[in-house]
Write a protein that binds this DNA or RNA. Structure first.
Length: 186
DNA sequence: TGAGTGATTGACT
DNA sequence: GTCAATCACTCAT
């Protein structure tokens, strides 16, 4: 990833992450998908975990940019975020959907017998398909077994309201590839 | 120490 | 299209 990429302002990073590759080198082989949908979560954002200050759970959001923030939601699903903003500022970008590129066999072993389209369509699904766990919370994403890599140019990117939240849901902080069959909604 | 809550998914109609 | 499952985390006792 080019130098300074993760230092981009959170909203720009959310847009720039579209088209990049999320790679996980596992013992079972390389698993890889192209990012097609993201959401930005800002420090002054009532929908963000960080808006009420640092806690044990959201500590990674307040760390340096370019790290993983992995948390459990609804008691059963993991969500994978890329931290952004300088150390001390709690912001991150949620990855909501991937287009599977490599390791579909391994994804399916984790996800069960689902259609190709449903392997990584949704934040909980992509975490499961890539084998992301709580042990990845706080790890750097510039290098290492789990990392972000530059990807080919994607199609047109459109912004819209975020999904699955009540507070500040109307803000256009969700980005996706227009018309992609791999995004979780619309 | 315990109740309320939720950045979702999968099963079902 | 609707709805229940299920539990870590937070905040209020």
């Amino acid at each position: 990833m080019r130098r300074g990429f993760f230092e981009l302002p959170t909203i720009e990073l959310a847009r720039e992450l579209i088209g990049c590759l999320l790679v996980h080198e596992t013992r079972a082989g390389r698993i890889c998908g192209r990012i097609v949908e993201t959401e930005a979560y800002l420090h002054d954002d009532p929908a963000s975990h960080s808006c009420r200050g640092r806690t044990q759970r959201n500590a990674a959001m307040f760390g340096p940019p370019g790290r993983a923030y992995v948390y459990l939601v609804y008691g059963m699903h993991l969500c994978f975020n890329v931290t952004s903003a300088p150390e001390g500022v709690g912001e991150a970008v949620l990855l909501r959907a991937l287009e599977p590129l490599e390791g579909q066999r391994e994804m399916r072993r984790r996800r069960g017998a689902v259609s190709e389209r449903d392997l990584c369509r949704g934040p909980g699904r992509l975490s499961e398909a890539l084998g992301i766990g709580r042990e990845h919370d706080g790890v750097g994403l510039a290098r290492g077994a789990l990392r972000i890599e530059p990807g080919p140019a994607s199609g047109r990117i459109v912004a819209g309201p975020r999904v699955g939240i009540r507070l500040a849901a109307a803000r256009a902080l969700r980005f996706r590839v227009a018309g992609s069959t791999w995004v979780s909604r619309g």
